[in-house]
Amino acid sequence: MGKSPSALQRASLVLLLVPFVGLLWVPFYNSTTPNFVGIPFFYWYLLLWLPLSTALTAVVYFANRAK
C-alpha cells in the first residue's frame, strides 16, 4: 500500500478476481471426469484452487510491498 500505487501494482489487483471466475463458473467443473487418483474432477479441481489462490494472492502481496 504505497503512497501512490504504480499502474503495475493496480493491475496486479485484477489477479484477485481470477479465483472468482474459476470457482463460480460451476458448470465448467461439475463432472466426475477426468478422475485423479480415484477422486472425481469436481473435487480435485476445487482442491487445486487452494494453492492457486494462495499463489495469486502472494503475487499481489509482494507486488504491493511498501517501498
Partner: peptide, 18 residues
C-alpha cells in the same frame, strides 16, 4: 457434492479480505 460449497467459500473470502 452441494456440501462442498464450503471450499470455494473459504477460498473466495481471502481476496475480499485482502
Amino acid at each position: 457434492a452441494i456440501g462442498f460449497y464450503a471450499v470455494p467459500y473459504t477460498i473466495l473470502v481471502y481476496p475480499f479480505i485482502f
